[in-house]
Amino acid sequence: MTSLYDEVSPAPAADVPTKRVTINVNGEARTVDVEPRLLLAHLLRQGLKLTGTHTGCDTTSCGTCTVLFDGRPVKSCTMLAVQADGHEVETVEGMSSASELHPVQEGFKQEHGLQCGYCTPGMMLAAKALLERNPDPTEDEVRWALSGNLCRCTGYQNIVKSVLWAAQKMRGQNPEA
């Protein structure tokens, strides 16, 4: 069991209620005691130390906190950790193995789909979910699928190219051809 905020010395006050939840995070069952009001994004970042999930706007607008919830993109800053009990959550840390990148990750690097990197994990997860249900999207379909994720650096054009690159690769085509 992982204790929350273990960087903080005192234990939570006795009168703070907690609830035990088990969430499958990146293929591994994690059981934690959480305050009912704890946001999923904060559980992932602070409790489980998965800091690839970012928080940007706190209002479900920017999408930097996007994770896959049972395979569908959700914004983890507006979801309670207790709502994830018994569900599967995938974060950016779960996208690649030690030796192999997911094609979406490769695509973002090849097509310069990122600059500061802050929106990138959420963007890539939204793209991965798209490609899993639509392996051959049009440019418009990519743009629509990513319209819940803001980027301030790239202007999106290269992000769209990155996703199309990954789609080609996942279909077994050579994206560099």
Binding site: L50, G52, S96, Q105, L114, G117, Y118, T120, M124
Partner: peptide
Amino acid sequence: EDNRFIRGKGRY
């Protein structure tokens, strides 16, 4: 720098 950002290993 992309090598860490695409893995969620940036350090903000």
